[in-house]
Amino acid sequence: MNFSKTLTTWYLENKRDLPWRKTTNPYLIWLSEIMLQQTRVAQGLPYYMAFTEEFPTVLDLANASEEKVLKLWQGLGYYSRARNLHATSKHIAENLNGIFPQDYKNLLKLKGVGEYTAAAIASFSYNEVVPVVDGNVFRVLSRYYNIETDITSAKAKKEFTLLAQEVISKDDPALFNQAIMEFGALQCVPKNPNCNICPLNTSCAALSLKKVNELPIKSKKTKAKNRFLNYLFILDEKNKTIINQRTAKGIWHNLYEFPLVETEILETENTVLDLIQNKFDDISEIILMETETITHKLTHQHLYIKFWKVKRTSTFKNGLDFENLNKFPFPIVLHNFIENNKF
Score class of each variant (00 low, 15 high):
267 E>H: 07
267 E>L: 04
268 T>V: 02
268 T>M: 02
268 T>D: 12
268 T>C: 00
269 E>H: 05
269 E>N: 10
269 E>T: 09
270 N>K: 09
271 T>I: 14
271 T>F: 10
271 T>D: 09
271 T>Q: 11
272 V>R: 03
273 L>V: 04
273 L>P: 02
273 L>F: 14
274 D>H: 11
275 L>I: 04
275 L>N: 07
275 L>D: 04
275 L>E: 14
276 I>E: 10
276 I>F: 09
277 Q>F: 13
277 Q>Y: 13
277 Q>K: 15
278 N>A: 08
278 N>Q: 12
279 K>P: 01
279 K>A: 05
281 D>I: 06
281 D>E: 13
282 D>T: 04
283 I>P: 11
283 I>C: 03
284 S>N: 08
284 S>M: 08
285 E>S: 08
285 E>H: 11
285 E>Q: 12
286 I>Y: 08
286 I>F: 02
286 I>Q: 01
287 I>S: 05
288 L>A: 04
288 L>N: 06
288 L>R: 09
288 L>P: 03
289 M>K: 11
289 M>D: 05
290 E>A: 11
290 E>D: 15
290 E>M: 05
290 E>I: 06
291 T>S: 14
291 T>V: 12
292 E>M: 10
292 E>P: 01
292 E>R: 08
293 T>A: 07
293 T>R: 14
293 T>M: 14
293 T>K: 11
293 T>W: 10
293 T>I: 15
294 I>D: 15
294 I>Q: 15
294 I>L: 15
295 T>L: 12
296 H>V: 13
296 H>M: 01
296 H>R: 09
297 K>C: 10
298 L>N: 09
298 L>F: 12
298 L>D: 09
298 L>K: 08
299 T>P: 08
299 T>R: 02
299 T>H: 05
300 H>E: 14
301 Q>P: 00
301 Q>V: 15
301 Q>G: 00
303 L>K: 05
303 L>C: 10
303 L>T: 06
304 Y>Q: 11
304 Y>L: 06
305 I>W: 10
305 I>G: 10
305 I>D: 10
306 K>C: 04
307 F>D: 07
307 F>N: 03
308 W>H: 01
308 W>T: 06
310 V>I: 13
310 V>Y: 09
